[in-house]
Amino acid sequence: MLRFVEIGWQMGCIGHSRVSLRIFGDALRPVEITLLLGCEATQAAYKGEEIHGRSTGQVRIARTGSWHLQAERREPEDLNGQIEEILGKLTADLDVWADIGQRYRVDLFCGLFMATSNDGMSLTPASLLALGQRGIELALDIYDAGDNR
């Protein structure tokens, strides 16, 4: 008789996550993206606009147009929840997403900050499908437990 034994091992949870939907393009007009998606950006800039650093106050010039929508930081990590938070604020019209994706670079930038040396996480099929239907590239930056946060 064949028996399956549950090992009971689970990987540690990622300590916290930060997630932002980003749209970039030289001709990008943030006000147009806001109208198309139905939500104000957390941060936006026109190409050539002066951008003032939040923490440093340093001024830089935007090399391209950008539109960002940031989710609330989650501790422990909840990437699926952050994807739902962001996409829940935006249009579900896939034709709008296709238009934006043809004209601009679109990604979901995720900062994953490990709490230990062997943390992990997973994405649900629903999250992966939602990103794929909208043509949103998933970009992951993973920081080990020793990195500054």
Rank of each mutant, 00 (worst) to 15 (best):
L94S: 04
A145H: 13
H16Q: 09
V106R: 01
L108E: 12
R149G: 11
P30M: 03
L28C: 06
G132R: 04
W9M: 06
D119C: 15
L2V: 09
C13L: 06
W67K: 05
V31W: 00
A45F: 01
E84P: 00
L112V: 07
Q82C: 07
G132S: 14
V96P: 02
R60G: 01
A92I: 04
M114N: 10
Q10A: 14
T91A: 04
R54S: 13
R149S: 07
L129Y: 03
I86S: 06
I33G: 08
L35M: 08
N148P: 03
K89E: 13
F113M: 12
L69K: 14
R54F: 13
F4R: 09
T34H: 06
G25R: 06
M114W: 08
G120A: 15
G53K: 05
D95N: 10
N148G: 13
G65N: 02
D78I: 05
E32C: 02
N148Y: 07
T116S: 13
F24M: 04
I33Y: 02
G88N: 08
C13P: 15
D95M: 10
Q70R: 15
L28R: 02
G111D: 15
A71Y: 11
H16P: 00
L140Q: 08
I136A: 03
S55P: 00
L35Y: 06
D99Q: 13
A41I: 04
R105W: 07
L138T: 10
A45D: 07
L138H: 02
F4A: 13
R63I: 06
L94F: 03
L129R: 12
L138D: 10
E77K: 01
S66E: 14
I14M: 14
Y143C: 06
A130R: 06
Y143M: 07
A145G: 00
G15S: 08
I83Q: 08
E72T: 11
S20M: 12
I142L: 11
D144M: 01
I14H: 00
I100S: 04
C39L: 07
V96S: 11
P125N: 11
L37T: 04
P125Q: 11
Q102A: 14
E40V: 05
L108R: 06
T34S: 13
I86M: 05
T116W: 01
Q43I: 05
W67A: 10
A45C: 05
G53F: 02
I83L: 05
L140W: 03
A71Q: 09
S17G: 12
H68I: 04
A44S: 15
G15Q: 08
